[in-house]
Design a binder for these strands. Structure first.
Length: 688
DNA sequence: TCTCACACCTTTGAAGTGG
DNA sequence: CCACTTCAAAGGTGTGAGA
């Protein structure tokens, strides 16, 4: 057997066991044999041995020579089942200890400062759409974004591994309607849909790999199906959203929840989700630039051209008839344009009003390898530079070249030039969001709102889902789908936490929601913190780290002080980060944000805001948790669905059986180790 | 406002071919 | 073997009728 020594630990405990044991050696984790089939009543901290006594995992608790010997044996692949009695138990302890590391191991072995810079690809195209009020079609079966969200990274540590993610959050709390060729506020937003984070399929990869290509999120799909099982991003129609890009320095998804998120927001990429296009200009832009819509281009021989010709013919014949009937009535405006007036828009989309647009991205749907050809095949005189440096240079950039960059806290979204948003209709006022009415039920599982952990949230939070399908990718993520699914179905192996109340909370949460509690927390803390109810829109990049122990301290701690109390958090060095967007924020806003951040901490998540820009965390953000049923369902369905390859969100669907087996192994390990298998009726996908 | 079937298109990968 | 071409299937589009 082999052990992977790369498991993350739970901050907040001197040592911690991680229930997600990356496993490669199969299920022959001989704990049951070693422990005589008895599970320790309290496996952690310290091991209760079957013959009494315990093995402390604290440094010095086990004699160093013995510990070294056992650890060496574990690392060298010793099969514990060959051991007996105390020897086996000690070996078990060593094996466990191999997965447990002192907190200091969380710190990078060799801290190589990176300074990520992110360029939005095809920025001009985004701005083109943005000026008219970008719309993204959402369908039940899922639709891609167009323009595709693509970024280019630089400044990463070449050797370090990174996980790149993307999510889409509500831009405000408004519902919109398209009226008089403009988007207008039509009321308060509908309840928030479950939040889902899309992890780039290539994650994790080294900084060198990321920087060598354009990071393309074109496979992310949008849906309005709240019960979506594919891992698509669920959005509300007629609501405004803001995509966000995250860089996480971590070599394993397991470390994701404990890692620092660097979040980048490009204001020009916001959009309104629609089930059918409202603005014909947007339709035309899509047709002109999306290669899949070529059939609708005027210049082609597709349906659109035929329809146009038909319309022309019918209109001409109609005009001729009219002229015969009414010789005196002339209509200069009739003719070719007339048929399209039927669309009821101020401008006709029939003929592209933006002929130069073709310069942009004929090939925008290219694969990640097209990073050198973003401009399209026929973009001879296309923009000289598609990429936008969001944080080039240091210091504020008040002279941002991008109109979209003007989005700042407290400022309304700048009015687009034509057919765009009405300025007053868009609110991104953080203090307002932090304090008022944004804690309503954002699709929060009713069973969770009453949990103490969530009381701080007012029963509302941003659910976060890591759908197994989203982890169906290569690299270290190859097993994460079933791992998570397994964790869900196993009801949550719980990490060792400080307080019993927390443990009970964890159990209840695990039962209600699925993810192991500590992972839930970290997921929540990491992701939830990133999301204010309205997306936590920061037109800059900010960093934060979530810690699981925050939840424990949150129950009793004052939010503002918990960060400092936490030894682990204290151990993390603040990083200097550059703000890609200039962001004038006044002190009152900051104070409000900080206050909101404090409530977040109280909600069960701690935040290390390491921005140097003096900005506070996302206001009103709340660690949230939605254990979408699809996560567990995916486990049970994995054998059928993955084999058919029907999960479009899982580009690398192969090896699902292996994953499934891995998941079952994990479950068995969890059952053996955690001693939390209190629910024998819980479904098991596979029994070892 | 939403859903669906549809035609049209691109993308992808397997199969075939030739060196 | 490798490179290239061909082909068919899969999948991504907006459309427009109907609910």
């Amino acid at each position: 057997m082999s052990f992977l020594m790369r498991d993350p630990v739970i901050p907040g405990t001197s040592m911690a066991y991680h229930p997600f044991l990356p496993h490669r050696g199969g299920p022959d984790f001989a704990m049951s044999a070693m422990l005589g089939g008895h599970q320790p009543p309290h496996f952690f901290p310290g091991l209760a041995l079957p013959h009494g006594g315990s093995l402390s995992l604290q440094p010095g608790g086990l004699g160093k020579p013995l510990m070294d010997q056992l650890l060496g044996a574990a690392e060298s692949g010793l099969h514990f089942s060959s051991l007996q009695g105390h020897q086996a138990a000690a070996a078990a302890a060593a094996a466990a200890a191999a997965h447990l590391r002192p907190l200091k191991s969380l710190e990078p072995e060799e801290e190589v400062e990176d300074d990520p810079k992110v360029h939005l690809e095809a920025k001009e195209l985004w701005e083109l759409f943005h000026k008219r009020g970008t719309e993204m079609v959402i369908t039940k079966s899922g639709r891609r974004m167009f323009p595709p969200f693509k970024v280019r990274c630089s400044g990463l540590d070449k050797k370090a591994k990174y996980i790149l993610l993307m999510d889409i959050v509500a831009a405000d709390d408004c519902r919109y309607k398209f009226h008089n060729s403009r988007w207008m506020v039509a009321g308060k937003a509908d309840p928030e849909m479950p939040k889902r984070m899309y992890i780039h399929p290539d994650s994790p990869a080294t900084g060198e790999q990321w920087m060598a290509k354009v990071v393309n999120f074109h496979k992310l799909k949008l849906t309005n199906n709240i019960s979506d099982k594919h891992g698509f991003t669920i959005l509300n129609s007629m609501h405004k959203y803001q995509p966000r890009f995250h860089i996480v320095r971590a070599n394993d998804i397991l470390k994701l929840p404990y890692s620092t998120f660097r979040t980048y927001v490009f204001p020009e990429t916001d959009f309104i989700a629609v089930t059918a296009y409202q603005n014909d200009k947007i339709t035309q832009l899509k047709i002109d630039h999306n290669p899949f819509a070529k059939g609708f281009r005027d210049t082609g021989n597709g349906r659109r051209e035929k329809r146009k010709q038909l319309a022309l013919q019918s209109m001409r014949s109609y005009s001729e008839e009219q002229q015969k009937k009414e010789p005196g009535a002339s209509d200069d405006s009739s003719g070719e344009q007339a048929p399209f007036k039927g669309f009821g828009r101020a401008s006709s989309p029939a003929v592209s009003s933006v002929p130069h647009l073709k310069d942009f991205c004929e090939s925008d749907e290219d694969s990640e390898e097209d990073d050198k050809d973003v401009h399209g095949r026929d973009g001879a005189d296309s923009i000289s530079k598609i990429s936008t440096t969001t944080d080039e240079g240091r210091g504020p950039r008040h002279t941002s070249p991008s109109k979209g960059h003007a989005l700042c806290h407290g400022d309304p979204t700048p009015p687009p030039a034509e057919g765009g948003y009405i300025p007053l209709s868009v609110h991104t006022d953080p203090p307002h969001m932090a304090h008022h009415g944004h804690m309503h039920s954002f699709g929060f599982p009713p069973g969770l709102s009453g949990q103490p952990f969530f009381n701080h949230l007012g029963g509302a939070a941003h659910p976060f889902l890591l759908h197994p399908g989203q982890f169906n990718m290569g690299g270290a993520f190859s097993n994460m789908g079933p791992l998570l699914a397994a964790a869900v179905s196993s009801g949550g192996a719980m990490s060792a936490m400080d307080t019993a109340s927390l443990a009970s909370t964890a159990q209840s949460l695990g039962g209600a929601a699925g993810l192991p509690f500590h992972l839930q927390q970290h997921v929540l803390a990491s992701q939830g913190l990133a999301m204010s109810p309205f997306g936590g829109l920061f037109p800059y990049h900010y960093n934060y780290m979530a810690a699981a122990a925050a939840a424990s301290s949150a129950a009793a701690a004052a939010a503002s002080s918990s960060v400092h109390r936490h030894p682990f958090l204290n151990a993390v060095r603040p990083r200097l980060r550059y703000n890609p967007y200039s962001l004038p924020v006044n002190m009152s806003d900051s104070a409000a944000l900080l206050q909101a951040g404090g409530s977040m901490v109280g909600a069960g998540a701690e935040l290390l805001m390491t921005k140097t820009d003096g900005l506070a965390p996302s206001p009103g953000s709340s660690g949230a948790l939605l254990l979408d049923s699809c996560a567990s369902e995916a486990t049970s369905r994995s054998s059928t669905r993955s084999s058919s390859g029907s999960v479009s969100a899982s580009p690398k669907a192969g090896g699902c059986s292996e994953k499934e087996s891995a998941a079952s192994e994990l479950q068995s390990i969890q059952r053996l180790v955690s001693g939390l298998d209190s629910n024998p009726d819980r479904p098991r996908s596979v029994s070892p």
